[in-house]
Nucleic acid binder design. Sequence first.
DNA 1: CGTTTCCTTGAGGTAAATCAATAACTGTGG
DNA 2: CCACAGTTATTGATTTACCTCAAGGAAACG
Lengths: 242, 242
Amino acid sequence: MTIDCRLCPLRPLPAFDPMSEAEVEFMVKFKVGELVIEPRTTILLQGSTSPQLFTALAGWGLRYQILPDGARQVINFVMPGDLIGLQAGLMVEMRHSVDSVTRMTLCVFQRRDLFALFKTMPQRGYDLTWLAACEELFLGDMLSTVGQRNGIERVAWGLVAYYKRARAIEKTATDAVPMPYRQQDWADALGLSLVHTNKMLKRLRSLGLMEIAAGSLRIPDLEALAAVANMDASRERQRPLM
Amino acid sequence: MTIDCRLCPLRPLPAFDPMSEAEVEFMVKFKVGELVIEPRTTILLQGSTSPQLFTALAGWGLRYQILPDGARQVINFVMPGDLIGLQAGLMVEMRHSVDSVTRMTLCVFQRRDLFALFKTMPQRGYDLTWLAACEELFLGDMLSTVGQRNGIERVAWGLVAYYKRARAIEKTATDAVPMPYRQQDWADALGLSLVHTNKMLKRLRSLGLMEIAAGSLRIPDLEALAAVANMDASRERQRPLM
DNA sequence: CGTTTCCTTGAGGTAAATCAATAACTGTGG
DNA sequence: CCACAGTTATTGATTTACCTCAAGGAAACG
């Protein structure tokens, strides 16, 4: 039994653009099923091709690339509402892998239906491009962080960006967001060693700027942490949901 | 006097996907003009909005982001055939700037015509998404480089990636490609200091792996340089041209 | 309750940053 | 054609932020 797009629990969230009734009806047909993935399982493998693409409906994942020498770069943290596998859907093969971290539920779409989407529902094609542009924008910020910020700034930046994104898809009013990721995941995302990441986190914690406990992250003063991160204040913008 | 899309000098190049006659005819109407930009001039400014987007028809540019503390991250090197300003076209404001490095000629498109493109020429909408996905893919590789590779690997990786891309749009059969960028540009792209970049370049040069002289780059043995870079051999894939 | 995984902390080493100064270009006007 | 000013490239000396190594402690897990 799968969730009907008409009743999608994500769409009403503040993170996402509203969708017309016609678009929702289209998505109902576009969605061919749901996939439940166990924790720490590979969803898409670097170098492979996939006949499907997905939207994360629930659960948390990890997008990463492995270099020939075995080093891992975490590209981003996959949250509910994120599109997975656009590369595989459009181009020939994936250049990064996607793993689940918690148990995940994915909406499944067929790659071969993708062109029909552009043809019969241009608004959705436009949204898809928008989504790809969002991703590009985020990766640009990430690149600036890893390329130009020092250790403490990188960690602070990562936490702020993560927190903002996670808050926008949380239904609850608490100031804590889920944090199912390991310090090693953060280290690989920020281009730091595990040890150094740990020390920077300790510093931020002792400054009272953040708290990670029991699988959740709390940031009492987002402005203050953003100041440490050497980043502008910018609120999370609404984006399309596929 | 502007170049007719039907006679576009870029489209026949091996770097780009072929285009149907109907698509070319569409582009003729979509293109509203040409813009000639002097060297070292800002084309699009971070934080601004633009009613236009562009395709680089000739010349070389630089896409970069400035952090609050003034640090500059070069996002990529803009070459002929590259789309400029998709972010500004889709979303509200640019999160990075684009500068010319040499004199450039740009094809100009209207942001307000963008949705019509999706509506009347779905294939072109699809191509645009593909292009955005290409960009995302590149930024992922760039992120892995800056996050995981050391100095010598970064410089080698940068040169190989640049060379492959530049070769695919060169008409000549020489093994040299234009190199109008400064070492400072490379340093800001790779997340290294100018001094260290210089030392790594010197090392690669003394190993006979590359040669930069008189504004052009020569790489006698691409395989060898790629080996230093800790990267897989992968040839440049054809991509859409707007 | 033993085993594995993850987090934490200290010590020492190193790649890369910073500082500083000179050399090689590039373009401009006399 | 040369002198001059302003970039850009090169090199050496010194410092430091971060990495690696190593080992103990705290959860998590069957």
